[in-house]
């Protein structure tokens, strides 16, 4: 079952904007309000638009369940290994060892209000991206599973 042509066209036009805005919220998580979870939820809303508007047979070609499962696992593994990476440098688990070093993501920040610099905050951008990917994959997989369950029950 699919919705009318108007709904399908609107969803096709709108979902790239949802994805781009979600990506912006994730990447600027350490500068502006929002972060991994919020940005991932916005991206998953973009995917949900497509999933609700189209039939299950049409959507499986564009959004693959396996790819979303892999994304989810990669997100959680990114988070875990970013946390564990501090151990190599004799720091505790989840220690922010990249901040204030002057290298990757390591620019120093002055106290008080300042124009944001993306190349700061050490481990936080990595963790943000990991959580964002995981939330996108997880919520999309839930929607796809629900839709597949409906299709199986309607067939007989």
């Amino acid at each position: 079952m699919k919705m009318t042509k108007i709904v399908r066209t609107t969803a096709d036009v709108f979902y790239p904007f949802c994805l781009v805005f979600g990506l912006y919220v994730v990447i600027h998580g350490h500068l502006t309000p929002g972060g991994g979870f919020q940005g991932g939820a916005v991206m998953a809303t973009g995917a949900a638009l497509l999933i609700v508007a189209h039939a299950y047979e049409d959507i499986t070609g564009r959004i693959r369940k396996t790819a979303m499962k892999i994304l989810e696992a990669i997100g959680l593994l990114t988070f875990l290994f970013a946390g564990l990476s501090g151990i190599l440098f004799h720091r505790p688990f989840m220690a922010n060892w990249m901040a204030q070093t002057g290298k990757l993501f390591g620019n120093t920040v002055a106290h008080g209000p300042n124009p944001g610099d993306l190349n700061t905050a050490g481990l936080l951008p990595l963790l943000n991206v990991g959580v964002g990917i995981e939330v996108l994959g997880g919520l999309t997989v839930i929607l796809l599973y629900m839709l597949s369950g409906i299709k199986e029950e309607k067939k007989p």
Binding site: V25, A41, A44, T45, A48, L143, M146, L147
Partner: peptide, 26 residues
């Protein structure tokens, strides 16, 4: 509380509605 506002708009207004729509479809 802009953090909570973004989460509420994404989860509450977007995803929950989509899940309800799919459930009503079934």
């Amino acid at each position: 509380a802009p953090d909570v506002a973004i989460a509420e708009a994404g989860i509450g207004a977007g995803l929950t509605t989509a899940i309800f729509l799919i459930a009503i479809r079934g």
